[in-house]
Amino acid sequence: MPNSDLLPSLLFKINENQLALEAAIMELTNWVEAHGSAEIADNVRGALDTIDKNEEFIKLTLAVLMTPE
């Protein structure tokens, strides 16, 4: 298997890790908010918005890269 064939799989796994980290950070954010730090929770959610905004593009691009030619 050529190295170029590994790239889509690698990017898929990196994206999967990124989404898992986002979920874990959101759980911590919810806990922080529940314990009286709403401002910090809002700041974290704002930072995580970038992941949400880019998610659809990443999924579509990975689908194209993983489609056999």
Rank of each mutant, 00 (worst) to 15 (best):
M1Y: 09
N3M: 10
L6T: 08
P8C: 06
P8A: 02
S9D: 05
S9T: 02
L10A: 08
L11S: 13
L11A: 15
L11T: 02
F12H: 09
K13E: 03
N15L: 07
N15Y: 15
E16S: 06
Q18R: 04
Q18F: 03
Q18A: 06
Q18D: 00
L19F: 10
L21R: 08
L21F: 14
L21H: 08
E22A: 04
E22M: 12
E22S: 05
E22I: 07
E22H: 14
I25Q: 01
M26S: 06
M26F: 13
M26P: 02
E27W: 08
L28G: 14
N30G: 15
W31K: 12
E33G: 07
E33W: 08
G36V: 01
S37M: 05
A38W: 09
A38F: 13
E39P: 06
D42P: 02
V44S: 02
V44N: 05
R45C: 00
R45D: 00
A47T: 00
A47G: 01
L48E: 00
L48F: 11
D49A: 15
T50V: 03
T50D: 06
I51G: 01
D52Q: 08
N54D: 01
E55H: 09
E56M: 05
I58E: 04
K59P: 08
K59E: 06
L60A: 11
T61A: 06
T61S: 04
T61P: 03
L62R: 04
L62T: 00
L65F: 15
L65Y: 13
L65A: 12
M66N: 06
M66W: 07
T67R: 12
P68E: 03
E69F: 04
E69G: 06
